[in-house]
Nucleic acid binder design. Sequence first.
RNA 1: GCCCGCGUGGUGGAAUGGUAGACACAGGGGACUUAAAAUCCCCAGGCUUUAUGCCGUGCCGGUUCGAAUCCGGCCGCGGGUACCA
Length: 851
Amino acid sequence: MSRYDPATIEPKWQAAWTEAETFKARRTGDKPKYYVLEMFPYPSGRIHIGHVRNYTMGDVIARYKLSTGHNVLHPMGFDAFGLAAENAAMDRGIHPKTWTYSNIDDMVAQMKPLGFGLDWSRMFATCDPEYYGQQQALFLDFLEQGFVYRKNAVVNWDPVDMTVLANEQVIDGKGWRSDAVVERRELTQWFFKISDMAGELLDAIDELEDWPAKVKLMQANWIGRSRGLEFAWDLSAPVHGFDKIDVYTTRPDTLMGASFLGLSPDHPLVKMLEKDNAELASALAEMRKGGTTEEALEKAEKLGFDTGLTVRHPLDPSWEIPVWVANFILMDYGTGAIFACPAHDQRDLDFCRKYDLPVIDTFVALDEPAPVEAAAFVPPKTEKVKWISHFAGLDEATGQEAVDATIDWMQAKGLGTGVEKFRLRDWGLSRQRYWGCPIPVVHCETCGVVPEKKENLPIALPDDVTFDIPGNPLDRHPTWRDCACPKCGAPAKRETDTMDTFVDSSWYYARFTAPHAQTPTDLEDAAYWMNVDQYIGGIEHAILHLLYSRFFARAMIATGHLPQTAKEPFNALFTQGMVTHAIYQTKDANGRRVYHYPEDVTVEGGSARLKDGTDVEIIPSAKMSKSKNNVVDPQAIIATYGADTARWFVLSDSPPERDVEWTASGAEAAHRHLSRVYRIAADIAASDAPETREDDALLKETHKCIHDVTMGVESFGFNAAIARLYAFTNALSKSRAGKEAKTFAAKTLAQLMAPMTPHLSEEIWQLLGGAGLIANATWPEADEAMLVEDTVTLPIQVNGKRRGEMEVPRDMPKEEVEKLALAHEAVVRALDGAQPKKLIVVPGRIVNVVV
RNA sequence: GCCCGCGUGGUGGAAUGGUAGACACAGGGGACUUAAAAUCCCCAGGCUUUAUGCCGUGCCGGUUCGAAUCCGGCCGCGGGUACCA
């Protein structure tokens, strides 16, 4: 008898699927469609075990849906623009294009042996001119529709390298290469008007029924709807044409606690003041140091500068408060100006203590009415508090009631306007980099900013660029910028900014429905295949990628590139966990970290050392990263055990949504199990056992297994489904049923395993005389009548603790269960002649006696 | 800092208000074998006075007849934080 030999069978069945075009997506009228999509990978060059896990999950769904009678679309592509290619160019002198396409070739070559049921004919990379040319066409349509505009925005500026840095290139406020302190500098940049859709994007979250609640919550918080009051403070004396300052506050009820008026360093008034105030200018320079991330801004030391100006309190013109510039006030949110109420905001309080500004209580706790000292009093908005003196006449009210009453009161007096605002900012899409999609506009001296003509698309990246000096090579290219103005024909200059790579990934799902169409999409194909029925990806994309995609779908509908029904492009979302692996690190003579490969480290009982005996520090459960040398390469596992073992193992032990720590030992065991399944099937094929009394029991087991595994696959409970398959394999192995019953059981087992271990399943299917490819076979259906047991084991609790159990008919009436339970030895002993205080019977589940 | 998760035996995990530890890994014991590998069978949360016992799901408290599960507060870890993708 032959042994399980994946090296032979895996290429054989892959060839058979290719030959039969099993996974080619087809549009036919007789079947429902199903579109399953995994977030496409960045072509780093090597697939890692996390990719294997991610794509295996998608493949399980795709193959399952194929066998339940769907036309399945399951495509693959590459998110191929981005920083890493430029870094490779700088570090190793390889052209980004060469590097990227060679990485794509390598990754495809590594993915194909895994036997994923993908329609490879639809593959594309976002750096293909065919793709980004259509993206440029989309951009032009968005521009025409008013979804795109230009404005100033801050970037990380490296003053030594004279270049813009990405946030990840800013380390502790310094440039990663130059080590210079980074500054925030303003540039004119392109923006998508996503904020116009903030309310719609927020409200529509409720429609996303099959999205994880945590993702919906994260998006809702990110969009951040708030209701507040916008009102003006009159300057005591007008300056630079300003006679008042508009502020927005979500806590207008604390207006009587105003201590100072704060301006963002980027506020227009501050920019005017800066011009003739050297002291202010130098304070602002200090405030503008450091990166642009929200985290950096939040954690930065709170700095202030007294402008010397004062404003009049809107409710009492004789009350004047000072105007300060404060670095924690964001120009992007509200009006870029606030009033501070230190008694009820910790950040304001810290600021006021630092700069010796007054702290005025406006409300106190009902139970402990103490004035604010070191900690601001910030109760939940739903908690009732006592107001010291409230202008709208409140005595005891919650914060929310006070806010609403204040807004009404201020509006009635004509002092302000209640407004709704969002935290969500417009999407800045300009990148001052080479390796991205060129923004298809032209700068003309007479016509200004002019959109490129569609017939000139794609505006392709030039190949002859170098990366020996920092900055954008498009900026210094001798000829690429030169062009004719599409409007007047005069010599003009191309825009040299390229698009954020999030643009590339915001519509690729739509492009997969017609990857070679001469327009961004083909409406018929899009109408057939959209929406993505199941989207699978990492939780790290919970906000940006998924929100931008939702925006893009709407903008594409508005510009006629998607049907109305594609407003929410992802019907169901599943966020899988990461595969993590310990990092092994030591420090060199200079105290710098040195990372070691797992194979160079001996781990024994929680401590690790190198071959030369050096102690190694173990950092557990870290995200796999090439630079940390902790990436597990699936190639070795596939070479040793085959793709099915790798696929089975990555699904078997952990729930798919959870992070999983990679250990090598499990792969061996997974392979032993698959060999065992093969052996069991081969034994059955070779046997001629007649039918026995055990046939029915095995048949029943088989149907229970069909039911449980189907439920598992439908609900992403892959690990539970696999545990069930282990148990069923054990049952089949021990069963003394006859050949016919066992053949049915083994063929069913092969079918239930097929989404996970497709090659082995095809082999077993063939061995046991199954017709055609198992990939095309109809998914087995459980016979409901076989799933029901006649009796159940009821646990008996006394005071909630398990004290015994009894076997009763499944449908025994409650009264009889009670009678039996009270007669149970353990209950009799516990009662000791007394009456039970309470008797709880949950039919089919449990009995609890309270004594 | 802020937002969102997660935390269960030596290990991965199961159980989503009803028998905590299914199914595996690693470990221990046995069968088969001249021997080994492979295979098959069995054991296995902790404690102790070995029982009809006690403890036990990060920590503290609460709700409930009953909590890993729900609520409140802490601790630890992870993801995101708008130019990594």
